[in-house]
Design a protein around this nucleic acid. Sequence first.
DNA 1: ACCCAACTACACACATCGTATAGCTTACTG
DNA 2: CAGTAAGCTATACGATGTGTGTAGTTGGGT
Lengths: 217, 217
Amino acid sequence: MTAIDEPANARSRRTREALLAAARTLIEEHGFPAVTMAQVAERAGVTRRAVYLHFASRTDLLTALFDYVNDAEDLASSTRRVWDAPDAAAALDEWARHLARYHPRLISLARATDHARRSDPDAAAHWDLVRRDWHAHCRRLSEWLDHDGRLAPPWTVDTASDMLWVLMSFDVLEGLVVDRGWSRERYAIHLAALFRATFVSQADDSRDDASSRSGTR
Amino acid sequence: MTAIDEPANARSRRTREALLAAARTLIEEHGFPAVTMAQVAERAGVTRRAVYLHFASRTDLLTALFDYVNDAEDLASSTRRVWDAPDAAAALDEWARHLARYHPRLISLARATDHARRSDPDAAAHWDLVRRDWHAHCRRLSEWLDHDGRLAPPWTVDTASDMLWVLMSFDVLEGLVVDRGWSRERYAIHLAALFRATFVSQADDSRDDASSRSGTR
DNA sequence: ACCCAACTACACACATCGTATAGCTTACTG
DNA sequence: CAGTAAGCTATACGATGTGTGTAGTTGGGT
């Protein structure tokens, strides 16, 4: 899906990258609504018409950019730590750290995509795919917690998944990190505290072998 | 502030109301980006030009509409229950119920305002005022909890206020109630559970006079 | 019956998206 | 090292939407 036009010209590939880079910096500087195709073209050093030779529409450019950044920023290595955790409770901590580590870089693009999806069905479809994927992660965490017997009442796998999922909201992240000036560190710590207090039941932690009992492998 | 143009004509007042009602239903049906001034005018039965005799811009119409609905829906009576609670922990429960009771009616308008503020400084300013007001509520709750000696670690009044504030996010509400199909009841219960587990320390509830000790009056 | 505010009818300037078309340039290929 | 096709430019166009300008018409209040 990423490499549909793979056998493209060298020049073409360069222009495409320049357009994506231009769009990215412009969006991060001024926000998506303020960024026009003309501006992207100008910053990339091409004609406005040329942009449409690479991207069918403004929305198409945005979604391609989102995927591009998602790939470039090495999402996989950040989530691996979550699934490598010894038990579900530790995984939840890592999940909070992952959100604090990885998502801040996506804020402006996520905002842009969220903005676009309100007026464009294509953007909405793309955004839904991304969020569906996130929800699967949250479900996996909830199931793990449940399997370890540490899912606190009144939570079920379903409700915990949903709640974890909405807590990934960029509104939450942006509100704290941007509007209220929280550091990523502070964000990670307090989000982890919220997760733990809310979803993790106080099991017999005195038994030190508890972690080995419930490992993944 | 609401009645700046109070001495207006009877016809003028009727038209203004018709425009607000038209805009409201249209936004709730199709979302703000899809609603044009021409459509609002048509539904209200006036000329597009006439809309600009009542509202300086599309943003102005939106913010006026937000305030109008906020007043009409009787916000005050919904929040009163929070501050009438016997103690801070109960107030937090009421706060969750308030959010589940009152905010769903505002979803489309809040989405619209949030959308508009990305591209319009005036909308951003108005939205900031509303959110500042919300933050004050959250701070009051946190201070009450702290005063009752039931603010759980690692929370401080500052951090708890901020976290409570971002949890008011319409992303959270919309994600659960719209995307995941939660009922308001379910939303209220689980939000209250999250609040309680996260922010309220397990105090000596056995002492039944604890509530009387920490009342507001 | 009068008058002024409120509204209409219509035209304009401007921004932005997306498309069309003819021609020029650059990179690959034989 | 030419030839050629892909990639790009230059320029124009249609469609929508916002917000303004202006002259004329209507209706509510006195």
